[in-house]
Design a protein around this nucleic acid. Structure first.
Length: 387
DNA sequence: AAGCAACCCAACCGCCGTTTC
DNA sequence: TGAAACGGCGGTTGGGTTGCT
């Protein structure tokens, strides 16, 4: 059953000939494509308008970038996909010169397989069940006697020797009520072994993130004497104060994964984890910060990015969690409830080289994740002003 | 060299939301 | 106001290519 636009006429299908391409190219160059249904007739093509449109968008458009995807592009696809899911058109918008079809094909033929090879579910970017089973079945450190000790799950050894994964992860897009996890913490060096995108919490050296640093400083204990450090104060469920100072800038600036950062977290942070507070806040060398909630053993508390989000239909679609005008909030405190309903902001701003500020702001805005502590929201306009 | 399988990617299909009449 | 037309999107398909046996 053909599409209604071409069901009434005899249209050619299949691959386009060079002559057809030439006709379409010439016509659209001269006349534009205000009405696709009229294009084939006017251009002398026996195709349906839809087919013409597709051919133009995916192949003939002059601004198309062809060839293999760069690492940066691959990274971008991964990052945006974590937030948006299979929204190829949206993802492609962040890749100049790439089409949704191209992105989709690249995902299906390449990235998807890499994720699976890393034990990650390509839909959710979470660990595949099989991988989780592996983790549990190895009863311990996952290294000594583990034939799969290079498996990503083998890195989930918690600081207290418990072989239970210290957190659960799920898609913030499809299942907003669950806790998201930065994939960089899940995967071994490889796909995610890149300067990870994340929530920018303050970094003056990286000009691309300066705007976000403004937001961070308003409500967050940023160490102004040391640009590389982030001070965080929390209370555990017993009300005891926990201070975490993270020095991200003194770490390696090469391609070491965030797993490494996790492993190298200050002891206070580890203690913090052991008290059941669950924190996964890491910054990579680009000063992008993953901030999420983890709930070991069902304990509540920790950082809460409260989800007072609304479900917005426009822009992101219903299933996405978006929150404007309510800003993201981080609440340290025992009162933070369990079953935290939050979204993973980690990919909201990806600070990798080449990522544009425009994207950061746009995606942040679209996800409604302007952050401030203490409820002091900051609008996108202001951010841009402050840049 | 032939046969086969896996892979890649262009194109199609069908659905959905918006616009037009 | 409702139906039709349209544009856009994501999922799927099928043909060409490549690599392996």
């Amino acid at each position: 059953m053909g599409h209604h636009c071409c069901s009434k006429q005899k249209v050619k299908r299949g691959l386009w000939s060079p002559e057809e391409d030439e006709k379409l190219l010439r016509y659209i160059t001269a006349n534009g494509h205000s009405c696709w249904s009229a294009v084939p007739k006017n251009a002398g093509l026996q195709r349906c308008g839809k087919s013409c449109r597709l051919r133009w968008i995916n192949y003939l458009r002059p601004d198309l970038k062809r060839g293999t995807f760069s690492e940066q592009e691959e990274r971008t696809i991964l990052d945006v996909h974590r937030i948006l899911g299979n929204r190829w058109a949206q993802i492609a918008k962040h890749l100049p010169g790439r089409t949704d079809n191209e992105v989709k094909n690249f995902w299906n033929s390449c990235i998807k397989k890499k994720l699976i090879a890393q034990g990650l579910d390509p839909k959710t970017h979470n660990l595949l069940p099989a991988s989780k089973n592996l983790l549990h079945s190895h009863g311990g450190n996952g290294t000594a006697n583990n034939p799969n000790n290079n498996h990503p799950t083998s890195q989930f050894q918690s600081s207290n020797g418990n072989d239970t994964p210290p957190f659960t992860i799920s898609s913030p897009t499809k299942a907003p009520a669950t806790v998201a996890m930065p994939p960089s913490m899940l995967s071994p060096p490889g796909l995610y072994d890149v300067p990870n995108p994340g929530m920018v919490m303050g970094q003056h050296e990286d000009h691309a993130h300066h705007h976000a640093a403004v937001a961070m400083q308003q409500g967050y204990p940023y160490d102004h004497n040391n640009n590389s450090a982030l001070l965080m104060n929390f209370r555990d469920r017993n009300g005891a104060a926990v201070h975490v100072s993270m020095d991200f800038m003194n770490g390696s600036s090469n391609s070491s994964s965030s797993i490494d950062h996790a492993a190298g977290m200050p002891s206070a942070a580890n203690d913090f984890n052991q008290q059941g507070m669950g924190i996964a806040a890491f910054m990579d060398e680009t000063a992008a910060m993953w901030a999420t909630v983890i709930e070991p053993d069902g304990m509540g508390g920790g950082i809460e990015m409260s989800n007072q989000h609304q479900h917005q239909k426009q822009g992101l679609g219903q299933e996405e969690v978006v929150g404007p005008p309510t800003p993201m909030m981080m609440n340290g405190g025992a009162a933070a409830g369990k079953g935290v309903d939050m979204m993973d902001v980690s990919s909201a701003v990806y600070g990798s080289a080449g990522a544009t500020t425009a994207f950061d702001l746009e995606l942040m805005e679209s996800c409604g994740m302007f952050y401030s502590g203490a409820g002091h929201g900051i609008g996108i306009d202001q951010l841009q002003w402050d840049c």
